[in-house]
Design a protein around this nucleic acid. Structure first.
Lengths: 196, 196
DNA sequence: TTTGATAATGAACGAGCGTTCAGTTAGCGT
DNA sequence: ACGCTAACTGAACGCTCGTTCATTATCAAA
């Protein structure tokens, strides 16, 4: 056997990315072999190298795409002219919703950064910083408007993001609370934390 | 060569645990080989098996000891008769301090849980739950006293712990803020978040 | 229908993995 | 000084790893 009937790169390519994401998230990057990914896709290991130069590039592509999506999605949704309080509320709800929708890759982008080369690590960190800055700008604006009372906007940024991302570690669909209720409760805590 | 001059299990044993902790934290459990650990200790790989039945047990021992230490340290430090606000402040400062002092194993206990067997995973999760309950009891007490205004004590517990543990991801010794200043700022945010 | 490009196979490469164990040396109580 | 035990070596076991490549089957355009 060689080429399979009905095989197309537009199908196999995304399939590889999807299976890699699923397996990396479930077992960890280092614990997943190229052969496992290939088996999940339904090809031999060698075929993966038509789609990625190496294993690390596969991980990097997943993380890079995710960060690009995250930033683009937020910028598309961020209320431009609104006051800081409204923008902060939007950010909180956006972050929880977006991250819960992509739990696998979010998990990956927190756990598997150290498996990237120094160069690729720096790229992802840069994008993360870009995203964090979006929140910090809101906090600074609120501080300037006099509606927030924040001792340190940098720390508040890190604290809020850690708090919101933490939802992914415990939230289970069909549990005691719906996503909307969780978002409401977290927004209440964040609003109070910034003194608004 | 066989036994080395000056070799003693009371020295080699802890050394293995220390090097394993360092390497696991730096490169990830799956990415570190028994030979690497042995080389860092200064023995051959086979010697490690005088101290651990297998690689996973090495990881489990590190995590188990850490969780035991964490819970014991908090119980030793928790103010028994105090009011909820004072107990919460103590918890916040304790958690930040204790976790910053043991950054490596804290990192491990968040990243490498999935490398444990189901059985060992459950044990660590149980200890984590025990620790979280200590915080939730404080929040419930404060709610009962009427000094806290918390929409959901379970969520508040998760939110606060995620927020506090997040300090480990960005804090660097000799940076803009000292540990004490960080603790002050986080306590301010937590206090506000619970409505006190 | 022919033909070149595309998509895949499957075997092979050298290296490293966790783990076991017979053998060897150092420490130490007698 | 002897002998027992604790500490460690070094080689070996069977696997799996990421990656390469000559080969082959299918697809799509001419």
């Amino acid at each position: 056997m060689a080429r399979k009937t009905g095989s197309h790169s537009e199908i196999t390519g995304p399939k590889i990315r999807a299976e890699a994401q699923r397996l990396f998230a479930r077992h960890g990057f280092a614990a997943v072999s190229m052969r496992q990914i290939a088996a999940a896709v339904g090809v031999q290991a060698g075929a993966l190298y038509l789609y990625t130069p190496d294993k690390e590039a596969l991980l990097f592509d997943l993380l890079k795409s995710h960060m690009d999506d995250l930033i683009a999605a937020w910028r598309a949704e961020a209320p431009e002219g609104a006051d800081a309080l409204a923008r902060l509320e939007r950010f909180v709800r956006f972050h929880i919703r977006f991250n819960l929708e992509r739990a696998e890759v979010v998990f990956l982008s927190y756990m598997e950064l150290r498996n990237l080369s120094e160069e690729n690590f720096a790229k992802i960190e840069g994008l993360r910083k870009t995203y964090e800055t979006e929140l910090e700008e809101i906090l600074k604006a609120g501080q300037a408007e006099g509606v927030f009372l924040i001792p340190d906007t940098k720390l508040a940024t890190m604290a809020i993001i850690a708090m919101l991302t933490g939802v992914n570690t415990w939230f289970r669909e069909g549990g005691r609370l719906s996503r909307a209720m969780v978002a409401d409760i977290y927004w209440d805590m964040v609003r109070k934390a910034v003194g608004a």
